[in-house]
Amino acid sequence: MIFIAIILGCIVGALIGVNMPMISYTYSGYLAIAIIAALDTVFGGIASTLKKNFDLKIFVSGFFGNAILAILLTYLGQKLNVDIYLAAIVVFVGRMFNNLGIIRRYYIEKFSEKKKDTKKEEQEQVENSEEEKQN
């Protein structure tokens, strides 16, 4: 269900993105920061899903809030003549790597456990289904 939603959303988003008008190059910098922030939130969401403490409100507020905050900070940085967007990029990309590390470790552990103990497979599947329910 949720994977179908993701795929459909990607397709619809791609269609909309292709047909959207181009934005001015001046504002593309802000947009890039916003995209980085949004991606960070998405990875954070995936990681928290794996940790089983995913919260929709936090996810949505982080998705939009972080993007808007990043844009505002970049704007402020330009007004102050300080490259604040660099700090935002460092923080967001650092957290992205962090979350990616969590995701990676989770799946590697799962995979190795599967190989080690085929008996635990059932249990893991139960866990997976629980996760999906939670999602």
Partner: peptide, 19 residues
Amino acid sequence: VVFLVCIVLVSVMLMQFRT
């Protein structure tokens, strides 16, 4: 919500790519 978030994220990203 995930559907909407995907739409927003992918469309904005594509826009940025094209730009």
